[in-house]
Each structure stands twice: as C-alpha cells, then as structure tokens.
Design a protein around this nucleic acid. Structure first.
Lengths: 398, 398
DNA sequence: TGTATTATGTTAGCAGTTTTAACAAAAAGT
DNA sequence: ACTTTTTGTTAAAACTGCTAACATAATACA
C-alpha cells in the first residue's frame, strides 16, 4: 500500500542514487535525468541537505552561458563502514566511506576455525580499525561475507565447508563483542553480485540481470534478476557450483558426483596438475599449503606444458558450466572472479569455445564476460554493499 | 520517478488484485487487508466502479452485528480474452472472462507447420469463437503460447524445434488477420509460470519464487523470482532443459550431448521402453503417432514391468534435474506439468529419492512439488495470463 | 558599457492523494 | 426504546508533486 509519503520516499532514494552515481551533479541535471521540474528537486535536495546525507560543493565553471550550477555531493566523509571477508586461510578487513571508497589499507589475519575465539579476534581488529580512523564519525555497519550458506534473518552461518562451520551463530558472537553497530552477514557470491548491481545502478549501462561467479576452493555464485538479488526461500539460491557435468563423474565434497565445482575449483586444477587423486581434504590441505594456483599459473607461463594443459582442461569445464548458467539465466553480463582469472589471457579461448558448444543460441554464446581482478577486492566490496546498499534501496510498496 | 498520481495507481492495482483474489470482499475488509482507513478505499473503489472494472453485488448476511457489508466483485463478464496453445500436433483455443475463467469448451485443430496458412486457419477459429460468444463485449486481447523461444517485443518466434519454426513473424501474420485486437506471444513455460504467480498473488500463500516445469516433447521451464518473471537479456532465460546430466551422454536435438531433456522427454521415455535408438526425428514421429506416453503409463499400470522400469528411470533423471533447478533457484514451490504427471503416483518416490541425492541441504530436498494435471490446461491458463496480468500489474516507478 | 539572452535555483499557489475525524446507515443486543 | 457495533460516506487537514512566475548569475552582442 502506497502511503501519503511513499512517493517522496521513492523519489528521495532516486535522487540519492543519482547523486551517488553521477556526482558531482547539479539540481538542474537531476531534474532532467528524472524528467521532472527543478522545483521538486529543490525540495527533495533540501530534505537530504538537512539530514546531512548530501552536501553542496563547488560551482560549475565549464558552462557556456547562464547561471553556474552548484554541484551536489554525497556527504560520505562523516560516515563509514567496515568490510570483512572471511576465507579459509585468512580473513581480510577494510574501512570505507559510505560510497564504498576504500579508506586506508586492507589488513588481514589468519582465520581461526573455532568460532568463539575467531569472533573475539575479529572484533578486536574491527575495534582498532575504527579507533585509528575516528576522524570518520559514525560507523554505519559491519558487512561480513562468508564462503557458505547463511541465513540473513538470523545471521547464522548454516554451512561453510571451507571453514568447517555448521549452524554457527556468527551474528550473535559478533553482536556480543560489538553491541552498538549493525552487523550484516551474507554469502560471498551473493554479496559480490549485490555490489555489482549497486555499482552500476543508475548509471548509463545498468545491468538488470547479471551473474557473479567466484572460483576459489569452491565455486560461489550470486545472481541478480530484474535488478534484485536472487535469494530463494532459504537464501541458498545460486548454488550453480553443484550442477552436474556428469552425474557419474568425480566425487565432490558435497557428497554428490560430477559437480561443476569438482572440475574447476583451485583444488581440482592443482590436483589435475599433480595427476593424483587429492579428493581427501587432509591431503589437499597439505599440498595446497605449498603450491597454490598462482604457482601453477607461473609454471604455465614459463613453459610448463603440463601446467598449461591442466589450466586448459579447467578452462574447458569452466566454459561448459558457464553455458548452463547462461542457458538458465540469460544474463546481460557475467563477472568472473578468483585466482584463476589471472590466467585469463591463457584460457579465454578454451572457455569461450566450450561455452559455445552448449549455449542454445548465437546470442547466448556471445554473452559478455568481465574479469574482476583480485586487486579490486570484489568480496570486500560486496561486504561494503551489504551495509551501504540498504540506505539507497527503494521502499517496498506492493 | 514517482509522479503525483503514482501512489493512486499503485493502490488502485492493489485493490483490483485483492478483489480478484478475495472476491466477494467488502470495502471494510479491503481496508483491513491494506492496513489503511475505509475512506481511502471508498475513493479507490469509486474510481474502479466508474470505470466499470468492478461491480457491487449482494450484501453479506453472515455477520454477527452491525451494518451488513456490500460485497465487491470483478466486473469480468463484460470483457473477454482468447487463449491459444500451439503444440506440435494440435493447437488448442479457449475463450475466458477477465479473471481467466473458462467460457465454453476448449476447441482444437491440427497444427499446420507452414506459418502463413497456419495463421490464417488460427485467425478463422479465433473469429468464430468471438462471434459465437458476442454476449461478451470487448475482447481485451489474444494470448498465444508457443513451444519455443520468442521475442516478446517483436512477437517473433525465434526458434521452435517442435514446429520447425525459425524467426517466424507470428505476430505480424496474426496482426494482418486480426488488426484490432492486442496480441501477446510468449514461450509456454514462461506463460505457465506467469499464470501461477498471477493466480496466487495477493492470496494468503503467495509464492515469490516458483518454477514451472513442463515435460512433453521437450522440457519447458518458467521461473519467477521475487514475484517477477525471469526473462533474461534475450527473453530466453529458463532453458534448464539443456542443463547436462552428462556432458558425454545421449545426443540431444539441440546439438549438444547429455541434456536433461534427452533423458526425460516423452520421446526419451518411449524410446527407452522400446529399447531402440529413436534419436532421429523421422523415426520418432512415426512411432509416437501410434504409441503415446499415455499408452505407456497404461501398460505400466496393467503390470508391464518394462514400461514401469522405463518410467522409473525417467523418474530418476527427472529428480536429478529438478535437484539442479532447486540448488540454483531455491524456489518455494515447483509446479510440474506434462503427460507423465498422470503417473505421478507411480514415480514420485523415485523422483524424490533422486532429488535428495543432489540437493545441498535437507530443506532443499523437501521443496514442495505440485502436479498440474492436463485438465487444468496450464498452458491455456498461461496464455490467458499474458492478456489479463498486465491489467493488474503495478506501475514501474524506479 | 549597457542590454539581451540563457541557464540555475527559489517561491507561491494549484492540484491530486492519503489521512483524520465526524457522521449517517443498518443491524443486533439489552 | 436505547445502546452497541460495524459499514460506508463526507468534509477538512496534511502532505506531495506540479505550474508559473521570479530572482540570480553568468555570457553574448551591439
């Protein structure tokens, strides 16, 4: 039901989003973008100025004639957010302002598997991060991404194989340590997808349907449909990593056989290189401590044929799986993250060929794939989006 | 941008939807459902009464005390829609009122594969259907569902293997014959999903995420995410029928190998029963003319062990594929249509067991599956939804 | 230099909606 | 006969976007 103030709420959020994506921008430009009059914008902006969400800045000088516009900016300096990326080996942290811009360095520490002690350690790092940067006033929230299934309502980590966590109340543990800050916990793939839609929304080339595929120890996938994150009934939607390539194929950690993940995870690629059966986790962890996928790529680049062959086979399986995602979702854009993307120049042809083998139409075979390099910290950006995106979201009305 | 009248538009649609799903319903009940006052409802309903979309009916008598409510109904008698379901062998037609209620009988004629003559024949049937029922005044539109990929903007049938159609301008051909009626053309799976969301929306158990799987000569899938149909960039989203069960498996009509469809289509099941390789289309069409999946089910019911075994194997593959859909989408409800569902009592355990083999969590393994029997004409209802749903859709504002 | 032109941003009043509060209508209980 | 309860309507208030006029500030041009 649309109430008396619903229109205003909606328009407020639209203005806020447009300022975020177009700043610096004048009131007049906003009125043109929103196809309305300048008067309405004046009132909306005045609201945002009073609340301190927006500030006026310099006046424009590059105009031909007429009064110069006063530019508007998001007042992002006064608020901050903390992004946390929990991975199997290390946990990464970053401080950002409200538009997700990084403030200071990314710091990290080894991940402990015992939830209680881990939460205490993590809270300590967060506190020191906030204290050392107290020029930034209020912390708007902490976004935490996890390599596993989560329940966003309760903040429970339902299942994170890489961490050995089942039904861990991460929210509760962190809440006890940091009682005054909103905490958001989400699956890393979903968070990455959220950050992509949130970064492109309102811009000239907004994608309404996109998929984020992150390949590391497992395969994490986040899907945006019609501009909204696909969550599903249990917030477990997007588990494309366990689509079968062959129902009688390689055993997967999930218990089933022939999952895509079992063919393209970092473990699978390394295991393929060594030619051993490294399916048992203990063996794997020993091996990978000494030899990472980055090492494998280096080998391939310096002429190791076996390494290149292992990468090419992974590339082929990667393409075959992507074809399934494309046939199922028909996205405008696929984002691809993970260590193996650093070898994209070596594997792209194999990926694209395999993809075209199974996509149903020519158009689907040409689906755009964008590599997201590790240096962009996609998971940390996803964690930020958990905190910042709700502030810009339109109200639910239906 | 929310304009001055946007709130009213939104609320108008909500009222209309609530009357559709709850009729008969009083103004007072509407105000309670929408959590607002009766005055607002009075204004909104007056608008709808003037437009003739809603009518007042009997007064309620089963109230304990107080003034009796005057019940409101959708004024569905004055308008009608035509639903068309094009299938490989026959084409079906039905006349409905605006809430999708069937008027008269379902009629059908053999499908001709030449687009021009087919369009002329179809238009003739539609005209006679409308003339024989001209008590119903204005025809609001014609909804046509097709077993293939469509472009909803142009009305082109991009690819319908069962009909041998590629880039057929079905919209243009029908438009020439019926120039004054809006025509909607859509893939059958998508239309079925649309009809399900549209029939449950506003009700007590609205499903925001659902999947409709229709098994016949091919596998058609329609997906609703966050209450909206998933279309994708080219309106080809939802092609789960070509997810692989084994990338080296049975050849599929699409050119790839091991597609789910190649294991569970009616042709696959019949072919399995005869133990022959019926992959070539000519052979298949000869066989199936004499022996349908319904016959196979009859055999199984009367004790033919080979028939039952063929069904059970199809059931197993059906379950394995559904697991992929469930892992990917995590829907609240799966609807299952197609001839084979008439044997649901025979195959449900096998389907459910196979499904649980590959679903990632217990909750996902328990995903509700509802059989949609042929007598409910799901594809024709989908065709109706193409015409009627837009009249109830909320305005796009963001 | 002075005037016209152009663009930005503000203000007052108008128009369309929801909301509040009061009231009329109709039925059942006491 | 009177009170209570519920439905539906009406008038006025409050809030929102919209229109039109106007102030402000820059450039263009004679």
């Amino acid at each position: 039901m649309a109430k008396r103030g619903t229109s205003r709420e909606i328009n407020r959020q639209i203005v806020l989003t447009l300022i975020r994506t177009h700043q610096p921008i004048s009131r007049a430009d906003l009125s043109r973008l929103m196809d309305t009059n300048r008067a309405t914008i004046t009132f909306l902006v005045n609201d945002l100025l009073e609340e301190g969400l927006v500030r006026e800045g310099a006046v424009g000088v590059e105009v031909k004639r007429g009064r110069r516009p006063t530019y508007l900016y998001l007042n992002s300096d006064q608020r901050c957010a903390v992004a946390v990326d929990i991975r199997a080996t290390r946990t990464y942290l970053m401080l950002t302002d409200m538009i997700g811009k990084q403030v200071g360095n990314v710091i990290s520490f080894p991940t402990e598997f015992a939830p209680e002690t881990f939460a205490k350690t993590l809270a300590g790092y967060i506190r020191s991060l906030l204290e050392n940067n107290n020029g930034l006033a209020a912390c708007q929230g902490i976004g935490v991404v996890v390599p596993g299934m989560t329940d966003i309502k309760t903040g429970l980590v339902l299942r994170a194989p890489a961490l050995g966590w089942v039904d861990v109340d991460l929210f509760g543990l962190l809440r006890k340590e940091l009682p005054d800050v909103p905490i958001h916990i989400e699956n890393s793939g979903k968070a990455c997808a959220l950050s992509q839609i949130w970064e492109t929304r309102g811009g000239s080339h907004t994608h309404h349907d996109l998929v984020f595929v992150s390949i590391s120890d497992g395969v994490g996938v986040g899907v945006v449909i019609n501009g909204e994150l696909m969550r599903g009934k249990h917030n477990t939607a997007g588990e494309f990593g366990h689509l079968p390539l062959s129902i009688d194929g390689l055993p997967c950690l999930c218990g089933a056989n022939g999952c895509w993940e079992a063919y393209i995870s970092n473990l699978a690629t390394i295991s393929r290189y060594f030619g051993k059966n490294l399916s048992r986790r203990q063996l794997v962890s020993l091996e990978t401590a000494n030899f990472t996928i980055e090492d494998l790529v280096k080998c391939a680049r310096s002429g190791d044929g076996k390494a290149l062959a292992a990468l090419h086979l992974t590339a082929r399986y990667l393409g075959l799986g992507l074809a399934s995602i494309i046939n199922a979702i028909d996205p405008e854009q696929i984002y691809l993250g993970g260590e193996i993307t650093e070898a994209w120049d070596l594997i792209e042809p194999q990926v694209r060929d395999a993809l075209k083998e199974r996509t149903l139409t020519e158009g689907l075979g040409e689906t755009s794939i964008r590599i997201v390099p590790a240096i962009e910290h996609p998971r940390l950006r996803g964690a930020v989006a958990l905190v910042t995106a709700p502030a810009f979201a339109a109200p639910k009305v239906a």
